[in-house]
Every structure is written in C-alpha cells, then in structure tokens.
Design a binder for these strands. Structure first.
Lengths: 234, 234
DNA sequence: ACAAATTTTTAGATTAGTCTAAATAAATAG
DNA sequence: CTATTTATTTAGACTAATCTAAAAATTTGT
C-alpha cells in the first residue's frame, strides 16, 4: 500500500507573524531605511541574538531581504502578510468595540490574539458583518482584502498653532493610560476640538471640546493626537 | 537597583489545551474508566510516545492523574479547563453561524482556533452578545461560566423502532460530509422526523421530514442522529 | 498460567524559538 | 585614521513538542 504524504505548509507561525508585524511597523516609522536587529529586539522585548536567528529564517522564506550587519526590509510577500495581520487586528478591534461593547482602551491585547486566527472566509465575513469599516476604534485605517488602505488626511495636533477648529481623527500612542486620559477629556473620534489659545512658551493648548468643556492639552498629549481641519474638504 | 521578576504563568499552552480537550471527550465516551495512552494518540493523530511525554507534563501540572501503564483521568482543575475550552468553542460556533452566516458544516476548524483565545471578559461578552445560547449549531450544550451544562434529554434515532414523531436535536458525528448529508435531507435542529416504518432486516427507516419530504435513513446515519420525543415534555 | 501479542514507556534525536557569552563587524570620536 | 564603543553575529545551551526504535509491562488466548 502506498503512503501519501500531504504537505500542508503552515505559511507563518504565530511567532513569525509577530516579527513580521513589528518589522512592518518599524518600516512605517523608519521611511525606507533598513530595520536594525536591535530595533526589532527592542520592539519585541527580545535579545538581539534571538532576532538574528529569526531574521535568517524569515529571509529563507523570502519574507524579508537581509544583508548581514545591514538590517532587513520586508519583501512584497512580507508586506502582504503584514497587511493581512493588521487588517485582522483592526477588524477584530471594531468587532470588540462596536458589537461587544468593549472600551477603546481594552481591546488591544485581545485583538493581538485574534489577529493570528487563520481563515480568509472568516475575515471577509467579519468585514461584511461590521459593514466594511474603513477605520478602527483608534482611527487607524483598515486595509481591505487587497491590502489597500484609505489614506488619512490628518496631522498631529502639535503642528497646529493658530486658532481653528479641528476634528479628532486618531492617535499616535495606543497605550491604555493615554486612551483613558483622552476619555476623561470626552474626546472621541469625530470630536470637535476648538483651539482657543496656544501657549508659545510650553506649546500647550487651551481648547473647547465638543462645544462644551474647556480643557488644557499639553504639548506631550497634543503630539499624540491626530486631527484634520474642520473647514477643509476632509 | 533591585530587579523585580513577575511570574506570569501561562496556565496552559495551545498544545496542552488540545490534549485536555481530547481527554475530556474520551472520558465522556468511556464513562469512568481511565483513558489509555493509545486512545489519546489515536484521537490526536499522535504517536503514543509523544502522548506519554505530554501526560507526564499534564500530571506535573495537576491537570490529570496518571499512573504508569494505567491511563489518565482529568482532575477537577483539568475538567474546569476542558469545560472552559468547550464553552468557547461552542459559543464561537454560534457566532459564526448566527452572526457571520457560516453553514453548520463549515465552522468546526475555525472554532478550533478561536477556542484558544484567552480572555474571560471576551467569552462572557460574546455569550451576552449571542443572547446566552444553551446549544451550539450542532445541538451540543454550551457550558455556562461555571461549567454547568443543560442536560439534553435526547437519544439516538437508532434506538427508536416504533412509529412515532421525534424532534431532531443533535448529532453524534461532526464530520463535514455527514452534516452536509443531513442538510440535503433538509434536516435542521428542531426538524420533525416522523417515523413511517422501520425495516427490521437492515434497521433502516422510512421517515417524513418536516411533514414534507419522504426520506430513507440508514442505520449508520440514524445512529449519529440525536432526537427527543415530540409528544413528551421536551 | 504461561507464551505471544499488544500496549506503554524509555532512550535518543530533531526542530522552533529562546537565552548567555564570546567573537566579529561597523560606527564614532578624538 | 586609528582606538574605542556599539551593534551584530556566532557558538553553545535550554525547553516544549514531536518523532523512531528499543525495552518493559500488561493483557490475552489457549
């Protein structure tokens, strides 16, 4: 009797996917430049030696290009995998907030697990169930099936120094504490921030939020708040 | 400077959970008797030597009791873990079928992944979101937060030999092919099966399903169909 | 009740993913 | 431009989870 072996190649392990996502995020910050072993190690709380090991494996699988001592970059295939993971992460976050009533500061760790669930049909049906959202609860764009993301026409609040109305559209810091702080300011995606004065000395703001409450926003906080102009054509 | 080490003990790995679930299911069939290494190996498509290794580890963790050469049994702790995994599996199946419109024969593999997602709040919120269902799409009872399951007052169709009406309430075989076959018979949970005749020779049935279509059901199929009496008090 | 068959365990090996310590390459600062 | 510092890689070791082959224990059939 013949023995038939079927090779079901698990494209990427849970661990590999975490590396791929980390590299993708570093590339987003690091515009064009190759990503160093150390940066990856820091971002994943891992030792550089372990990272070297893993990037060799990812390089063998054609997920990154790697030149010894000169860092790595994702290949086309690597970027596709990264965008797929990010798509899943952000769709699950929408599910958790919109359907299960989690708060926006509670969903990251759970989505971090859910993003590794492997099923094309599941992701696409989830996407439809949620009404094909374009942004997640933190204002981050959700890639579509083909990895395309809607371009966000937004900028950091800290770049605005004149009196004007802006719309809160996202954050650059996803830490629980920061998100909770914004919640105490009654800042939600879409909230109107009216800049009443800008303090030239410490770069802080006096603002009115949602036409109601007057608040103080420090430069540190402003730098992590993304907004777009309230008059302009979005 | 003092170094503080926090022990975040991952209670059970993905792999351990699969063993625990397999042992639980074997115990359900095997009423009381200890589960053999070989049975576990067969059920997980693993070699007995690997199973021996793992049951030593599970025994060290007080998840099973193990006596060399005499099989294993889940401890209280082990049963709790198993029921928690089964709760998650069945709730996710309800989600997939009721909310995402998957068919009942398509959900097993996806739920097999989702059952390992670790978050008490997630499971409980999902449970509420689904309206605290008591049965999954295959008629299996869903354990509640405390591991309690509603007792199903059902029996195999193959134990019925007289003309009577019964209600289809579950399956003993969860294979895709079998579920798809039932679908072609237009058999859904709650369907009325009216036994018109029982063939004493091959133990097959002539039945009317949902008062509409007349069908033939073999002994083999009947043995995997669970029903309850249509007259009796549920 | 004992020999043969079956089941289970042990021993030793492998792979993925991690670590520490040592070696090597690259970057930097006089 | 060379010495020092920093970053990276290599070497060797460990754990979890698996395997095969061999040894040991249990069960079974007459």
């Amino acid at each position: 009797m013949n023995k038939i072996t079927i090779f079901v190649r698990m494209l990427t392990t849970f661990t590999e996917e975490n590396y791929i996502k980390a590299i993708f995020k570093l590339e987003e910050l690091n515009h064009k430049a190759a990503i160093s072993t150390n940066d990856i190690a820091v971002s994943l709380a891992m030792k550089p030696a372990s990272v070297t090991d893993m990037i060799k494996r990812l390089s063998d699988k054609k997920i990154i290009t790697y030149k010894k001592y000169h860092g790595v970059l994702l290949t086309k295939k690597g970027k596709e995998i990264a965008l797929d993971i990010i798509r899943k992460h952000r769709l699950w976050e929408v599910f958790l907030v919109k359907k299960l009533n989690f708060k926006w500061d509670e969903v990251h760790d759970i989505a971090e697990q859910l993003e590794h669930i492997n099923s094309k049909e599941l992701v696409n049906k989830l996407d439809d169930f949620l009404g094909n959202p374009k942004f997640d609860p933190h204002g981050d764009a959700i890639p579509d099936k083909d990895g395309k993301m809607r371009y966000q026409q937004s900028f950091s609040l800290s770049t605005v120094t004149n009196k004007q109305k802006v719309i809160f559209s996202g954050v650059l810091n996803h830490e629980t504490k920061f998100l909770q702080y914004l919640t105490t300011l009654e800042l939600n995606l879409g909230s109107v921030i009216e800049i009443e004065s800008f303090n030239d000395y410490d770069h802080s703001y006096k603002v009115k939020i949602n036409k109601k409450n007057q608040e103080f926003i420090s430069e540190q906080v402003a730098s992590s708040i993304l907004v777009y102009s309230a008059n302009g054509k979005s």
